[in-house]
Amino acid sequence: MMAAEAQATRGRGDAPLPPEPILRLRNIHKSFGSHEALRGVDLDIRPGECLGLIGDNAAGKSTLSKVISGTYIPDVGEIELNGRAVRFSTPSEARDLNIEMVYQDLSLCDHVDVVGNLFLGRELKRGPFLDQKRMLAQAETMLAALEIRIPRLTAKVEKLSGGQRQAIAIARAASFEPKILLMDEPTSALAVAEVEAVLGLINRVKARGVAVVLVTHRMQDLFRVCDRVAVMYEGTKVAERAIGETDLQELVDLIVGKGGH
């Protein structure tokens, strides 16, 4: 793993002291009926850093990321943003504080065109009307910046392939200056070149000081972009490792519960 080593040396070199966390989660609990999805999770997210969130299915990764994005309201626990306690009651409140999320189900509107989906919820207007021309022009720049190629931006999203749809969901979250970017399985339906583009994108937004949380099953991606990895197991965080101090085997053991606990 050449890339991993390079990443590790760089990580140790230019950040002797970890920066203050932009987001701090303490003792987060969330239940759905009798099912305890999260059982007291603590997590720090730092600017300019990519945190990998891994774990088996139903370990609570998606639930945790949805708590951060305001989609779920935790039953118990505190969230601090830049040292101030916050409480999101809707996803739009989190979005207003520059917390963006790429949902696993993509959350696209099939009957709206590509441009409309990119600007969903923050349409540009000219007077009382939608400014379609300006949105189209900006959408082209947004997609070009992420090296995403969609033949026709006025096509309805339902006509696009799974990979193209995922690319649009990512572009929507990454293009509006997020401070925290949550990505739930962003590369699961992508082709090789598109995965490379997303990993490149993560490294670019990290360099701009954005905190990235990457929920993924693709272990090889972790070593390409993450600085830290948090392992979830049955609704708890069982381990946290700096990427340079761990390897694939240890992470796999932690995920399945063969680790030291």
């Binding site: 979005r95 959350s107 939608l130």
Partner: peptide, 24 residues
């Protein structure tokens, strides 16, 4: 076709949860 309200109506009919998540 040309107002934000119309876009919201289509979005709510197309995917209500997505519309909620983007703050509509």
């Amino acid at each position: 076709l040309h107002t934000q309200y119309g876009r919201q109506v289509v979005a709510v009919g197309s995917n209500m949860e997505a519309a909620r998540r983007v703050g509509m």
